[in-house]
Simulated scan of single mutants.
Amino acid sequence: MNSEELQDQKEDKSDPLPSASEGWSLHYMTGDLFSCPADEALAHCISEDCRMGAGIATIFKKKFAGVAELKAQQKTPGECAVLSRGGRWVYYLITKKKASQKPTYDALRQSLEAMKLHCLENGVGSLSMPRIGCGLDRLKWEKVSLMLEEIFRDTNICITVYTL
């Protein structure tokens, strides 16, 4: 392999999809999501009924409250409810009707698009999240991470994904 081919191979590994913006990035951290900087927006998936009775959603519910505020927004699957808390945005991706159901990739994609729009309209530059849809909801991270790249690659938003 010549040096040009080696360089091409390195570029392929570091940037699997072409980026229209120098600012877009996806980082991975091991640790507690809530240890992220206090000014970073947060995101996770919930159901339209806003039950938040299992998984990381229970921590969001306890930490940020606002269930009545979320329900009042009347968001449906494929949309994104939003709370403003302590100088940060907290995004609730509505990916299914009821807590007992499983989300679809389509509903997740639509809710990510809605979140992206809100981020762009409100100057959000940093967003932290768990491996959304891949815990109790059992979506495949390989598909979800590609979806994140496709949706956010034309932005200047830095996304950090936390795993314990």
Rank of each mutant, 00 (worst) to 15 (best):
E79T: 08
R85W: 08
Q9E: 12
K97D: 01
T104A: 08
C119D: 05
G86K: 09
L83K: 08
D8V: 09
H118N: 13
W24Y: 15
Y28H: 15
A99W: 13
E113K: 14
G53Y: 02
V67Y: 06
C50G: 00
T163W: 01
L120N: 12
S35A: 10
D137L: 00
C119W: 03
K75E: 06
K143W: 05
Q110D: 13
I46A: 10
H27I: 09
N2W: 07
K143F: 06
P103K: 01
K62P: 01
L42M: 15
R153K: 13
L136Q: 11
G125V: 06
C50N: 00
E121S: 13
I151D: 13
K96D: 05
T30S: 13
I94P: 01
M1N: 10
D49I: 04
S21L: 04
A20Q: 10
K62Y: 06
A72D: 14
A72I: 07
D32S: 12
K71P: 02
D154R: 07
N156I: 04
V124T: 15
W89Q: 15
P18G: 12
M52V: 03
Q7V: 12
K97Y: 03
C50Q: 05
A43L: 14
P77N: 03
I59H: 04
A20D: 09
T160E: 02
F152A: 03
M1S: 13
W24P: 04
W24C: 08
K98E: 11
A41Y: 07
S3L: 11
I59C: 08
S25N: 10
K10A: 15
R131Y: 02
L164A: 14
I151Q: 12
S145W: 08
E142S: 15
R131P: 06
T58F: 09
Q101M: 10
Q9Y: 14
T104M: 10
G31C: 02
L112V: 11
V161E: 00
L17M: 14
S128T: 09
P103Q: 02
